[in-house]
Design a protein around this nucleic acid. Structure first.
Lengths: 222, 222
DNA sequence: TTTAAAGTAGGGGATTCCCCTAGAGAGTAT
DNA sequence: ATACTCTCTAGGGGAATCCCCTACTTTAAA
């Protein structure tokens, strides 16, 4: 991957299994003067081949590819080209993905629902060497990083305690408060406390959001 | 809604909350000589206003709109204009949706993953007064209609009603009972009833299992 | 026409949620 | 050593919900 000079257009490669969406992004990119559509792929295999061939400046990757996920593809790309610029697009607006994606080495996370000019903005920001995340997540991620006070910002994954992690897993498996309490041989009140602490740490509004988070977390750990 | 004469281009209206996707479809339509992009909307409310104003020949509706679902929007459109031509596009590849959508009055069901020329093909078919469904679903739907007497429910979610499915989705998105009730303008008691019915139909023991199921189902693409 | 299903909603007791406070023990910084 | 922080534990109490009922209306099917 080469850095484009000021007179060269940045070459953008798109990996998404929705042809129409590729078309839409392609159009948006080619309207701009400082970037140009370089190639596309509908799955991870084609993507790795195409990227090697076209040597783009930035790769846009859909996180929910069929077969190999966008997350895995990102890791593969970064493994081959540590300096590669990967911008993830996703249907999901979930912190769980934002964090994982950035940890995997991607330089940005963008929701498909966001308007077209956001995509261009995100591309420019990543090309400039910055990290792009939506405004709404910037705050949340900041809170998470800052909230731990002195601890180093090596990871976004919040420092849940062992016990909290254990409870989170059981929640994700669909167990009720009472069930969890009896499985861990403690009071339901204790589990309620863990609920509250986890919710605070993860910045979740209510127990439904917690369960949602827990289920997603359990699924993504596989 | 007026039928276009042979010399008039068919006006196509797009409802989708992904701007990039609208852009992509718009491009594909405007390439063709017998159709033209007429207008767009990102949600149900804008859609109903825009459709009334632009009076398009065909409306493309994304099934997974935020707020009012594409299914509900389709029903509203058909209620206002029984002869309206609605083509549903979806990220999802589920029989439940195909059936539901056609029962709601839509004239076609198309997956976003399908290539661009399929969309044009689908639009032409619907404009001609036919029903469009993907080849793979044609057979399945036929089998279902034919052999309805003998075969039982092969899929769990098939048994859920429209409303129940809507509630399941909102649960999967992490909304609370109260939230869902106010979003759907009904009593919390009604939502509780839906909870109970869904649990029975899906054979789930408690609400935590229901939430777990809902989240997984939402993630695995409705 | 009868039957069934869907959508609505209420009663009422059991349970859980969600805001507090709080103590014991482990680890850490000054 | 002392003070401070974090973890794990658990309770009080009111609000919310769950979960078992019943029940009415409307629409669809047999």
């Amino acid at each position: 991957m080469t850095t484009p000079t000021k007179n060269q257009k940045a070459k953008i490669f798109i990996v998404d299994d929705h042809p129409v969406l590729r078309q839409g992004i392609k159009q948006l990119i080619n309207i701009e003067e400082d970037m140009v559509f370089s190639g596309e792929a509908g799955n991870a295999k084609e993507a790795l081949l195409g990227i090697e061939k076209k040597n783009p400046d930035l790769v846009i990757v859909d996180i929910s590819l069929e077969g190999t996920s966008g997350l895995e593809l990102t890791k593969s790309i970064i493994a081959k080209q540590p300096k590669a610029l990967v911008l993830i697009v996703s249907m999901y607006d979930e912190a769980i993905y934002v964090e994982r994606v950035l940890k995997a080495g991607a330089k940005g996370y963008l929701m498909k629902r966001e308007a077209g000019d956001h995509i261009i903005k995100a591309i420019r920001k990543v090309l400039a060497g910055d990290i792009y995340v939506s405004e709404q997540w910037k705050d949340k991620l900041m809170n998470k990083v800052m909230g731990r006070g002195t601890t180093k910002n090596e990871s976004f994954t919040v420092a849940l305690s062992d016990r909290e992690l254990e409870v989170l897993q059981l929640i994700g498996q669909g167990h009720s408060t009472r069930q969890i309490a009896s499985e861990l041989f403690v009071s339901t009140k204790t589990i309620e406390s863990h609920y509250a602490n986890i919710k605070n740490k993860l910045d979740l509004k209510n127990s439904h959001e917690l369960i949602q988070y827990a289920v997603k977390w359990c699924l993504s750990e596989k």
